[in-house]
Structures are given as C-alpha cells and as structure tokens.
Design a protein around this nucleic acid. Sequence first.
DNA 1: GTTTCATGTAACTTCAAATATTACGAATTA
DNA 2: TAATTCGTAATATTTGAAGTTACATGAAAC
Lengths: 146, 146
Amino acid sequence: MKRDSRLSSVLHALLHMAERGEPMTSETLAACMCTNPVVVRRTMGLLRDAGLVASARGPSGGWQIVADLNAVTLRDLYDALGEPTVFAIGNRHEAPQCLVEQAVNAALDDAFAEAEALLLDRLGKITLARLSADFNRRYAAHRTRT
Amino acid sequence: MKRDSRLSSVLHALLHMAERGEPMTSETLAACMCTNPVVVRRTMGLLRDAGLVASARGPSGGWQIVADLNAVTLRDLYDALGEPTVFAIGNRHEAPQCLVEQAVNAALDDAFAEAEALLLDRLGKITLARLSADFNRRYAAHRTRT
DNA sequence: GTTTCATGTAACTTCAAATATTACGAATTA
DNA sequence: TAATTCGTAATATTTGAAGTTACATGAAAC
C-alpha cells in the first residue's frame, strides 16, 4: 500500500510559508518538498477551501497562510484534507451477512474507533504555532552545534 | 490504498474453525470467506508458524486450532501476521535533512505512536473465546428473531 | 493591451502494496 | 497407486496515492 503523506506534506509547506512571510509559488514549495507543483496546488487547494491559506495568480502570486497559527491544529488540517482513511488495516467485508464475520467486525471496529478517536484528539491539541516554535528550537540547537 | 484485511480474515476463519471442531480445508475456508485457497494457506501459514493452528496434508487433512481460545488475543494474531503497518497515513520522508520536516515528523510520530499503542493494547484484551461467545449470542438472538 | 507569471483543473500515467491466480511439487491417507 | 490437501514460487490484478502533461484562466507589470 502507498501511504497518504499529505498531512505531513502540508505541514512541511505551512511551516516553510510561516517562516517566509511572503507568498510562495507551488513551484517553490514543490521543490522544497521534492514533489510536483500540480500536487502542491491540489493539496493546498483543499486548505484554501477550508480558509487556512489563500492563493493568488499572476506575477507575485502564490500561496500564503491566512489563519492564526495559534488557532489551527493538525486536526483542522486533517479535516481540511477530507478526513482521509486513518488505518491501513480493515475489515474484509463492510456489511457481511455472516454472523461470524459480524462479530469479528464489531470487535475490530470498536478497537479501531477508539484508537482513531485518540489520534484525532492528539492532533487537535497540536497547533501550528507549537510546531513552528519546535522548529525554531531545533534550528537554534542546530546553529549551536555547527 | 488497499487495506490489509488479513486480521479480519483470520478471525473469521478461526471462529468458523472453532465452531466446527474438525479440520477444515483451505478450499472450504476460502469459500466461506469469498477468497482463494492459496491466500488462505499463505495467511494461515503464518498462524501455524506462531503455533496457533496446525495443518495436515492429504485426505482428511486441513486446518485446526491448537491453541486455547482463552489464551489467544487479537494482539497475538496481529503479531503472528508480522505486525503489519497500522496506519494509512505517514510521513513524506522518513529521515529528512530539512529541520522543518524533522519537527513535523516528530510531532506526527508521537501522536501516531500513542494511537498505535492504544490499539494494540485493546487488541491484547480481546480473546478468541470472547469473540466466540459474542458470536454465539448473536446466533441465539438471530434464531429468536426468525 | 500585451506579455509574463502563476494558479485551476482535467486527463492520464506511474508506483506501491495487498490480494488473487496459476501451476506444480510434496506429503498423506485409503 | 490414486486421490486429496498442503506448500510455495511465479505472475497477474486491483486499488488508491502520487506524479505528469497539457492547457485554460486570471492577475500584475510594463
């Protein structure tokens, strides 16, 4: 299976944008994430629909954060991306006739639902501001070392 | 992404085997799970390697549970399957140079690790015996209704 | 107002991982 | 020895994410 890395990607992009302060083109963002401008536009487009970033066309255009870094959590990003499937493990059939399979599914669904709830709760507690601060700590430490 | 449904599959198979009491061929199991005998053999083979089931060749051969249903948890099955990847969401790069991406990955890794730990803990608390009992409750209820 | 730059998006291709299939060898029972 | 069943290699299919190509649309700069 190929894992969905969009959450990781948009976070990477957003922190770079936060550092920069001025609009960044999808080309620039794609370069710093080793991907393709179209992929960036597609993904950032979802964040724009959610009101988190703004895009502008033409010269001096590009992408910019419009939300308050203290107010945006990773959960918000997850939601903006369309609440992608969390687990790579799932039931064989979703609504089986077989009573055995129903019992199996019920047990698995419970456990996975609990884990998903915990994950989303954790994501809801991490703000972009905190990640940005974390990055700046790492940056300072890095400059000290070298 | 295509989700891994082997945990669901082997559970389904094991409960059928528990009900039956005598060996079941991979062909029979495949039929009741709408899949292929070879797939069954491959997957059940992992459980055999873990000492949970036994296989016998030739006429009157097939698959049988050899473990105590009270002692086997879903976590044991997960382990027997080789601890498959839990999440369909992941980091873009695993060991990035970029400090921004390192900060992002660290935050995500934490949240996902917590959720995974909770999931495995839950799986470790569900025994095959409990699932079997759950099935029998459903079966009784079903017979009452019809 | 024309040129240039950048997004918007449809259509298609590639890639990775699970699952399915075919084929045949090896072991076991009757 | 014939029938049955597992063991397993090799290959194909399927699914969904990611990447690519192509071109239309809109905005700024001159």
